[in-house]
């Protein structure tokens, strides 16, 4: 099946406008034969929210949540939004399909250094749980900084994930040509091959308060091959072919999961944390 990555540029706080952009891109992806779409982190709200977080948060029953569900009748999709739960606000990502919100991931690793201040405005997620989809197989969602901690992908690997979906809002920075953009690709090269898993990474573009986001979204196969690479620094839409047989072939070639020893790792972590 064909999966699309929608590298869009959300506007800060303009949720209706951003929702409209989702609808356009879903139709466009559908026109290109895609059967699912991945949007970037906080694609519904924009990234640099600060005190706007509670104002743009949505929860079950919120009209915008219903509109997102409705949109998934066009095509199933992953997108990022602010989730409100018992007066807590999460940087969240959801998988919407056939008019339902099927799965939610709450960002676990909130960056709080350099230009990032997420811990000030969001509550921390507490888990990395896969979910099953009849077409996509076993899926794990990561949000941006989650993915820069290989331990997150490892937890999904231990759950035999077939597809890692990464939603990102990574600002372009550094000399000579924004190495921050390449950093994600390096990660995907390693993660996809060594955890024998498909990776779909969607980064946003556009500008929030002088920060420009890098784009460079991509997908990797479970043998570590790049399947599609979107443009740097501008809006783009790209698709890649997702094939279950390819997962099987990769795992025959390289039985990483079979050879993994989670009990050893578990014991070692317990020892390091002095929990024995």
């Amino acid at each position: 099946m064909k999966i699309a990555i929608a590298q869009m540029a959300p506007a800060v706080g303009k949720v209706e406008e951003n929702l409209g952009r989702h609808l356009e891109l879903l139709e466009k992806a559908k026109g290109q034969g895609a059967e699912a779409v991945v949007f970037p982190e906080l694609a519904l709200t924009g990234y640099e929210l600060y005190d706007l977080v509670p104002d743009v948060a949505i929860k079950e029953g919120h009209p915008l949540m219903e509109k997102l569900k409705e949109a998934s009748k066009i095509l199933p999709f992953f997108t990022g939004f602010v989730l409100e739960e018992r007066d807590l606000f999460f940087n969240a990502a959801g998988f919407f399909r056939d008019g339902n919100l099927v799965h939610i991931h709450r960002k676990v690793f909130l960056p709080n250094y350099s230009m990032f201040e997420e811990k000030r405005f969001f509550a921390e997620g507490e888990n990395f749980r896969t979910f099953e989809d009849p077409d996509l197989g076993r899926v794990g969602i990561l949000i941006c900084y989650d993915y820069l901690h290989p331990s997150s992908s490892y937890v999904y690997f231990l759950q035999q994930a077939d597809l890692l979906v990464v939603l990102s809002a990574s600002p372009a920075r550094g000399y000579p040509d924004f190495p921050s953009i390449r950093m994600w690709e390096n990660m995907s090269k390693v993660v996809s091959k060594h955890f024998t898993v498909y990776v779909a990474y969607a980064n946003r573009v556009g500008f929030d308060g002088g920060m420009g986001f890098g784009g460079g979204s991509h997908a990797y196969s479970p043998t570590g091959q790049v399947l599609v690479r979107l443009k740097d620094l501008e809006e783009d839409l790209g698709t890649f072919e997702y094939r279950r047989e390819e997962l099987r072939r990769a795992r025959i070639l390289f039985p990483a999961y079979r050879d993994e020893r989670p009990r050893v790792i578990y014991r070692e972590i317990r020892r390091i944390l002095n929990e024995d």
Partner: peptide, 23 residues
Amino acid sequence: MKIDAEKIEKFAVQFLRTELSRI
């Protein structure tokens, strides 16, 4: 400190265009 001038040009041009149209 070396910059990729072509990439910076593109980035800066987009920045100016985006911010002007937003305002």
